[in-house]
Write a protein that binds this DNA or RNA. Structure first.
Lengths: 194, 194
DNA sequence: TGATGATGTCAACAGATGATTACTTGTGCT
DNA sequence: AGCACAAGTAATCATCTGTTGACATCATCA
């Protein structure tokens, strides 16, 4: 009987352990927040020794930061959605932002950001960026419009929370397009000049 | 020198320790969420021995539950705000809900509910109630209006988060009345028949 | 007065948790 | 071949965390 004896030291061949840790960490942070996800639970989910997390990422906080790194493309997408004429970008902004939450490739990062950022003061920065990023990318913004854009983003965040975290009423199940159609007019109210 | 030697056993006179624990717990849960607040940090904030928490409340979760008990009056207030004609209660609902967040007597409970409910799946019920409570109290609700009310509540939650947790843009500082005036029209959009 | 329960302290346990250290083995370069 | 480094493991530490049990003192009421 050829027992696959557990060996120590570096195993032969290539390894995707780094990526697997990153993916497992994303899922864990998304499900339980920064505090709730433990290094051991992440390591187990990744099928990896705990000490390997420190080897690749230093410590838990740095792993968390690496986890939240959104692809360049996503940032560009958000920037574009708010860079046009505010009077007519309500649907574009709504569809882009809520679409990020529908996309499996980015949803975990958003979940992790919200779960961790809201659970205490210490991990709030990424969440603030998520909301204020739109404000900054709309650089040439009339100060009188700033509050309107902030309120539009708040509405979108609240909607995403209700749909993907709490699942209140029919919001968790209605089709994406209907959701966009319903939210867009309210967002438009905030983006229009007063 | 009369050293005030630490005595054991029940001290003479009355005691408000139970209430002080409750208040300290509210503040701690509001600031750090369920996981972030530790029994020891609560006890220290209350100036009380850790074991006393268990004596009065059993365990941490039960203390948390006691912390979230909103006064009857507040529940009634919320129920009234959504019980009228939906077409004309936008401002009433907006003012009532956002007003709860302005009130120091109830803000900590709302903060604790949001921080703890969003940080993981385990404490999500109180948060769901906070959102869906409005739905249930509006019992005789046209199913076609349900999504609208849910979206209105989502907007209010998002607004409260932006104002009281993340402090995005001018939302954290603008006067309460201006906030209500800005949010009401968007809420109205959701409450109006389509 | 005496019994009973409420209030409070102390010490400690058992498990979880993040991090570190020493050590082993493969890879790539010269 | 020899060497530096990357990848990986095991063991362990120090601390934090929720909870418990034994005990001490006071208040209340018959």
């Amino acid at each position: 009987m050829v027992t696959k004896t557990k060996r120590t030291g570096r195993p032969p061949g290539a390894s995707d352990n780094r990526d697997r840790i990153l993916e497992a960490a994303r899922a864990e942070f998304a499900a339980k927040g920064f505090r709730g996800a433990t290094t051991r639970s992440i390591a187990e989910a990744a099928g990896v020794n705990v000490a390997l997390l420190a080897h690749y990422f230093g410590n838990k906080r740095q792993l968390f930061a690496a986890t939240l790194d959104l692809p360049e493309a996503v940032r560009d997408e958000m920037a574009r959605a708010t860079s046009g004429d505010l009077d007519t970008t309500a649907e574009s902004l709504t569809r882009t932002y809520l679409g990020l939450w529908e996309n499996p490739a980015t949803r975990d990062q958003l979940l992790a950001t919200v779960r961790s950022g809201l659970s205490s003061e210490e991990a709030i920065e990424p969440l603030r960026d998520l909301l204020a990023g739109a404000l900054h990318s709309a650089a040439n913004l009339d100060p009188r419009r700033e509050a309107g854009l902030a309120l539009a983003m708040s509405h979108l965040l609240g909607t995403a929370i209700a749909r993907h975290l709490t699942g209140v009423g029919p919001l968790g199940t209605i089709p994406f397009d209907e959701l966009v159609n319903r939210v867009t007019p309210a967002v438009q109210v905030h983006l229009s000049p007063r």
